[in-house]
Simulated scan of single mutants.
Amino acid sequence: MTTLAGTDPAPSRVDAGMDEVAQRLVDSSLVASRNAMTEIDWTAPLDPDKHGCSPEWSALYGTAYWEELTDDQRVRLTRHEMASVMTICVWFEMMLQQLVIRDQRAVAAHSPEFTFAMTEIADECRHSLMFSAASQRIVGRSYHPSPKVARMGRVFMNVARGEVAYAGILVAEEILDVLQRGSLGDPRVLPLIQTVNEVHVLEESRHMRFAREQVREAMVGAGRFRRASSAVLVALGAEMIVINLVRPQAFTDAGLDRRRAVGEMLANEHRHAMLRGSCVHLMQFLDEVGLLTPAASRIYRRCHLL
C-alpha cells in the first residue's frame, strides 16, 4: 500500500486518551497539509490519453462490456466515473461535517479534540471545493444521489450519534481512500487527479484516525442492544455509499448503454473482489469494537464489502 509523508497508518493505541491523539493529529496537520486549490494549475490542458482512475478500478473493468470499449471510450468512462465518485463524496462529506459539528457542541473549545475537529471541518470544506472543481474540469459537470438516497441520507444524519456518526464517517472515508490509493502513482491517470488523490489521502488519514478513536471511546460500556442497532445503522450507511458512488447518469454521459452498463457493474465480480480486498482492515476494526454483528455482516456481504 502506498504511504504518503504525514499519514498516520499505525494502529491506534487503546490506552491513548482522546486529547493525546487529537493533539498529535493537530500537530501533524500544521506540518503536513496541502491545498489543491492553489497547488493545481486548473487551466492546464488535459492529456487526452489519461484516465480518471486506474482502469482496474473502473466499475466495468473485467466485464464483457469493458472488452468491447475502445481506448478512448475507456478514458472517457473512467473520467465520468471519477467525477461521479468525487461529487457524490461532496454530498457525503457535507453530511459528515454536520455530524462532527453537532458532536462537538458540548466539547470544551480549548481542548485538542475540539481543535482537531474544527481542523477536520476546514479540511473537508477544501476537499469539497477540490472535488467539485476537479469534476468540472475533467467532464464539465457534477452528479447527485437519487431522491430516495437523499432522503435516506437525511434520516441517517438525524439519527446518527456517537459511534454511529463516527463509524459512518470512517466507512465513507475508508471506501474513498482505497479507491484513491488504488490510483496513486499510476502514470495512466491524469496528473490533476493524481494530485487530488494525494491531497485527500494525506489529510483523510488523520480524519480516519480521529474517527477510530471516537468510535473506540463511544463503544466503551455499550450494551448488547446498542451494539446491535449501531452496527446495522453503520452497515446500512456503508451500503448507501457503495451503491451510489457511480451514478447511472455517468455511464450515459460517457456514451455507454446505461441499462447494460449498470447491469454489468452490479454483477462485476472483479469490482466486488477489489472492494472486499481493500476493506479487510476496516472490517477488522469494526469487528474489534463490536460493530460487525451477524446482521451487519449480511449487509456488508450484500454490498460486497465483506
Rank of each mutant, 00 (worst) to 15 (best):
M1S: 09
M1Y: 04
A5D: 14
G6V: 14
G6Q: 12
T7W: 15
A10H: 06
V14Y: 12
M18L: 14
M18Y: 11
V26Q: 10
D27G: 09
D27S: 14
D27N: 15
S28N: 04
S29C: 09
S29N: 11
V31F: 04
S33Q: 05
S33D: 05
E39V: 04
P45Q: 10
L46T: 03
P48Y: 09
D49L: 15
K50H: 07
K50F: 03
C53D: 11
W57F: 11
S58Y: 02
Y65I: 13
W66F: 13
W66I: 15
E67M: 02
D72W: 04
Q73W: 02
V75M: 12
R76E: 06
L77D: 09
T78R: 02
T78M: 03
T78E: 04
R79C: 11
M82R: 13
A83Q: 10
S84E: 09
M86E: 05
I88W: 02
E93V: 06
M94G: 06
L96F: 14
Q98P: 02
P112M: 15
T115S: 13
F116Y: 15
A117P: 06
T119G: 05
E120W: 15
I121K: 01
S128W: 01
M130T: 09
S132A: 08
R137G: 07
I138R: 13
Y143N: 00
H144S: 14
S146K: 11
P147Y: 09
P147Q: 08
A150P: 14
A150V: 12
A150K: 14
R151P: 12
G153L: 07
R154L: 08
M157C: 12
M157S: 12
N158A: 15
N158C: 15
V159I: 14
A160Y: 11
G162H: 14
Y166P: 00
G168H: 08
L170G: 07
L170W: 08
V171H: 00
V171D: 00
A172W: 06
E173M: 00
G182R: 08
L184W: 07
L184G: 05
G185R: 07
P187H: 11
P187S: 10
R188C: 07
P191S: 06
Q194A: 03
Q194H: 07
E198D: 10
H207D: 06
H207C: 06
R212Y: 10
E213W: 15
E217V: 13
A218S: 09
A218L: 05
F225L: 13
A228V: 02
A231V: 01
V234I: 08
E239M: 11
I241C: 08
N244R: 01
A250R: 03
A250E: 03
T252I: 04
T252G: 10
A254P: 15
R259I: 09
R260P: 03
R260T: 07
A261I: 00
E264F: 09
L266K: 11
N268Y: 11
M274I: 12
L275N: 06
G277W: 10
V280P: 00
V280Y: 01
H281F: 08
H281Y: 08
L282N: 01
Q284T: 07
L286G: 01
L292Y: 01
L292S: 01
T293W: 04
S297L: 04
I299K: 09
Y300P: 00
H304K: 07
L306D: 05
